[in-house]
Design a protein around this nucleic acid. Structure first.
Lengths: 156, 156
DNA sequence: GACAGAGTGTTATAAAGTAACACCCATGTC
DNA sequence: GACATGGGTGTTACTTTATAACACTCTGTC
């Protein structure tokens, strides 16, 4: 997530994909929900619910209540359009909505970027480990803190 | 974590291990910190900071402030005596303090139990996935939601 | 156009976590 | 013994994150 990428384009893409997915599923991507999704995507970094709330208030002029944002986020998470990053209490746009996947993140301590990966090896290892203990997996959460490639290079 | 286990004994064990570890490291396991550790262990379930705070107030009669508990927990987490479960905002005693490990949890949605595992396959898969992307791992978090063995059997 | 149900607004409140600063007390030093 | 030092604790106030309860509105359906 860097200088070399057309961010406006990638927000537009995310919205288009969301429109298509919701239409297909009969889920209602209302104006508010769409707007919240757009605000989540407004950076590639995880954003807190209250940051989004502030955007709504400032950019749109309406003083929204926290619940407004939380309900929209809940919908977006259910639809797989957004992931919640537990260790940050924050939300980030899903790079591959529609695909079945669990949400694995490499969270950089330096720049705050959260790169979503969907590593089959990690997923398989978790399922195997759980199965060995008789545990039925419903929702795996993997959030790896560390330093991303570009931050390692910078700090050197 | 069930009827068949001597819980009193296992709390005492945890405290003994903590004493030994801290002595060895020159870390100060003060009365307060020791007491908080004991309260974390008072069930095998993850406990919130405020639940521990309440215990302190009720059982010990002192009306402690949140910070008191948070500071003790911070110390205990640093020493690896306690893990924080991000997705629950809660803390749980570490089953194997002293050993190097990262904290992987199988969290049962039904009974609330959080079983700590240290599966080498999962750890290795995460490191491999990160390495493939140039990411330097500092602290992996794995929290798997699902149903534990005994809850699956019960619900059947 | 009346109904049902989903979505949204509003107010209040709970839960989780932190900042700033004062005090205490064990330890080592002179 | 007096003293400085620094880690640990207490206290007050506050911020951030999240939810409850209830009323209202919009949208599609018959």
């Amino acid at each position: 997530m860097s200088a070399l990428h057309d961010h406006t384009h990638c927000i537009a893409d995310a919205l288009t994909r969301a429109d298509a997915l919701c239409a297909e599923r009969g889920a209602r991507l209302t104006a508010l929900r769409r707007r919240v999704l757009e605000l989540v995507w407004s950076s590639h970094r995880p954003r807190g619910a209250y940051a989004i709330l502030e955007d709504l208030s400032q950019q749109d002029g309406k003083a929204a209540a926290p619940l407004t944002v939380y309900r929209a986020l809940e919908f977006l998470v259910e639809q797989g359009l957004v992931h919640r990053i537990e260790s940050l209490n924050a939300y980030v746009g899903c790079a591959a909505p529609g695909d079945v996947h669990s949400g694995q993140f490499l969270v950089c301590e330096a720049c705050g970027d959260a790169a979503e990966i969907d590593d089959p090896g990690v997923g398989a290892a978790i399922i195997a480990a759980a199965a060995g203990r008789g545990f039925r997996v419903q929702r795996p959460t993997v959030e790896v803190r560390g330093l991303c490639k570009s931050c390692q290079e910078t700090s050197r």
